[in-house]
Every structure is written in structure tokens, then in C-alpha cells.
Design a protein around this nucleic acid. Sequence first.
RNA 1: GGCGCCAUGGUGUAACUGGUUAACACGCCGCCCUCUCAAGGCGGAGAGUUCGGGUUCGAUCCCCGAUGGCGCUACCA
Length: 477
Amino acid sequence: MRVRIAPSPTGDPHVGTAYIGLINFLYAQQHGGKFVLRIEDTDRARFVATSEQMIFDALRWLGLEWDEGPDVGGPFGPYRQSERAEIYREHAEMLLENSTAYRCFCTPEELEAARRQQIAAKLPPRYPGTCRNLSAAEIEAKLAAGVPYTIRMKVPAEGSTSFRDELRGAITFEHRNVDDQVLMKSDGFPTYHLANVVDDHLMQISDVIRAEEWISSTPKHVLLYKFFGWDAPRFWHMPLLRNVDKSKISKRKNPVSLVYYRQAGFLPEAMLNFLGLMGGGMPAEINNATEKFTLAEMLEHFDIKNIRLGGPVFDLTKLRWLNGEYLRAMTPEQFYAALRSTVLSDATLSRIAALVQTRVETLGEFGNLTHFFFADDVMPAPEVFLPKKRTLEETLDFAGEQLAVLEATEWTHAALEPALKQLGDSKGWSVKENFMLLRAIVTGSTMSPPLIESMIVFGKARTLDRMRRFLEAQKRK
RNA sequence: GGCGCCAUGGUGUAACUGGUUAACACGCCGCCCUCUCAAGGCGGAGAGUUCGGGUUCGAUCCCCGAUGGCGCUACCA
């Protein structure tokens, strides 16, 4: 048995990745198989350079070690899709040769126009098929003229494709509902669909355990296996983690960054345990008796076939309770050690100390200026955060802009300061108003150590979370 | 809109291959303990299993339909 997780390095490592990672890890271990980590970095527009390392760190923090991957190597490498460009190109060529794919010379504008028309006519937006049957001469002419093109798969016009989902049984899609998916983008990179199928085959993946959002594209994948003449793996689609309002879990409504959970002082054992509760999977006698179990116990008792398919709400309240249980179960020494290795680490404390040294007259005042680093419920009152000449509405709008800018900015002084100032300039907010608002949100006060340095020490994940909570709380009022 | 998946208290789950007063945990409320707050102990409210049909002596469980939720519907994954 060989399984894999294939996260995209587009930002912070996601709880959904941890969930799918856990299930794959358990499955591999239980079957004496291999657990592969593959980095799907084919989307250069959303690529974030620091993301890959954060994914490694987060997975290791949870104890989900992989047998093969970009950093540990393995017999089926490379494990980073950007390093496999040639492989995808060759395979796309194979499909072109056996006429199960074709070059598409349509421009994004043409496609967009066609899509708009179809939607206006209340038709499902589909590729109109313009380039599906170009003559060899037409293709030659376009190629000679250097017209950029994509490669699309040629989904049969008639019939249907069925596959078995191991958790749900047979699922069928009529071909007329399956679009001619782009396989190779005009920039020469493959799309997920091609890269995924090619890699899963080449890496001899036996079981694809992924999130439910992929069900709709599975017929495309099954068709691709067929086009290549390969056997498809088994498919297991896990339920999607949800926000409290039941929508697919998202950072707007819920912290999703594993970096946040780690920095906010959640324990990996608690996170793993909580994830193991999602969708069930543990036998009733354990689930009913305690709901508390370790990775080792999951390895022994978890059964993927027990997974319930309703999308479970990722309930922070229960996670917090569980985390508290683990904290309380520690010896005082262990608890103190946990504190010292996280929120009260020497590294953090010394950085904070450096920020306040010139601002205190006695050591006893240390806490006055720094409590916001250690508190979890910072929430400024309107008289603190609202600038004199601004309305509540424009202030909250601007705070939302700040959040967006911060989110997209590298977490260094050199990047943050100009980014914030540029935002202020473009929106007509003075530097003072701009920074004061942010200071109030992040520190809860109009007086604090240097703001940007403080945010850097506090961390991106936690700073953004604090801002989202602030906005959420104000919105509710 | 089209296609697909799903459906047990507010939330996470349980209920063997149809037979239980539908169970446990979180959360909530109350009481006890207690200098406070937690933790802990005890108790309570809260679902008749989305709805409607069907099969059956009997359906949370099987079938059909409806409704609702969610996902997909990109040169993102």
C-alpha cells in the first residue's frame, strides 16, 4: 500500500492538510505501507516560498512523519512537482499522440466571453470545443505563428464514467457533464489533474485518500488513467471540515493555520486527537468511553471504513476543552516545560525584553507593557481604536484593508512598514491614524512597544487571527 | 442554473447484519466543594433520528421522492 498527501505551498499549512495527512498516515502504518509527501507547486501565481518549510514543520510537529518526500528523498522522486516539468510534458505529448488530448489556442478572453454567454443563456459553462477538431494544417499554422496554447483532455462526447469511492460506493458522471479540462497551461506547467494522475501512477500510489471536494473531478482523473492505459488507484474521499455555519472551513471564519494553533499553545496530541474525532473512525467502545486517545491508539483501533460522511464542524470549543484535558494531565514540571518551550520560550522572552528595556523604569513594569503578548482576549473599546475624525464604518473597512495587506506581506520590518504606509497613502489615512488603529487592535492599547517589531515577535498567524477576531466582534455589534 | 455528495439534540459522535425509555462527550443551566476563578463531583434542559411515502410484525438503519446543507462548475489546488 502506498498513499500520499499532496499539499500546495500557497500559504500557511492548513488544518485540512493535517486531517487528510493523519488519515493517510494511519492507513499507511496500519497496512505496512508507505506514506509519501508530495509538494504540488505548479501554481506559480499562488506560490509562497516559505510555505513548503512550514508544511514540513507543521506535519512533524504533529508527529506525522513521511517515508518519502522532497526533503527525505525516496525511490520515486523528485517529490516536488516543479522539478518534474519534463515528465508532465512527455506525458501530455503521449496523450496528444493517441488523440485523447488536443492543443487549444483559445485566449483567456475568448474563453471568458464564451463562459459569460453560456451563463447568461442559463447553460452550464463549458469549453465550447472550438479547438477540439482542428485540422493538422490549422494546428501547424498556429504553432508556426507562435500562438500560445494549452493542452486539453478530450472527454468522449457520449457515455459516462463510473468509479468506486471506497466510502460511498459507485459514483457515475455522464460525459456531457465533464468538461475538457486543461491539462497543460500555456506557461508550460501542468494543472493539478494531469500532474496528480501522472505522479500517483509513477509513484505507485495504491490508495488516493483526499478531501471530498475532489469527487467532481475524479471522473476526469479516471479518464486520464484510461487514456494512458493505466490502472486507477482506489479512491477514498474524506468529508470536508466545516466552519460553524457548515460551509467549507476557511480562514475568514475559523483559524485554519497550523502555525497559529502551535503558536497559540495548542498541543499536537490534542490537535491529533481532535482531528481523529472528526468523522469518527474510532470504534464505538473507545469513542463513547473517553473520546480521548493518542496517535498510538488510533494506529491500533482507527478504521477508515468507519468514517461518517457528514461534514464535521471544526468546533474550537471542543478542541479547547480537549487541549485543556491534556494540559491538566501533565505534571507541573511538564506543564511548565510546555510553557517555556512555547509562549514563554527564552527566544520569545528575550525579544520582548529588548522591546521594552528603554520604556520601563522598574523591572516590575514589564507586564504593563507586554501583557498583550500573553493574553488571548485582547479587544480594544471604540474609544481606544476609533480615530477622532473617522466613523466606525470607515475605520472597520480600513482595518479590513490592513488585514488584507498584512496577510499578503512578508513578515519582516522591511516589508511591513512600506506596505502599511502605502495602504495608508492610497486610502487617505495618515501614518499616525493608520498605525494607531493597528496598534489598538493588536495590543489593545494606544501605548505599546514598537508596533511592527511587536507584531513580528507575536507572529503573523496570531496577529492575523487577532485582527480577524476584532473585525468579527465589531461586525456583530 | 447544471452535476455530484451528504443528512441523529447547538456541536462531535454512538446505537451489532432492522427490535434500546435513541447513548456518550463538548457546550449550556443548577447544586455541591471552595477565599475567587477554574478543575472535580452530582443533577437538569435539549433530538424521537430533515420531511413524505414505501418494504416489514417492527425502521435512525433498506427503497423511492421531496427539502435542506455542502462541494464542484478556472490556464487554483
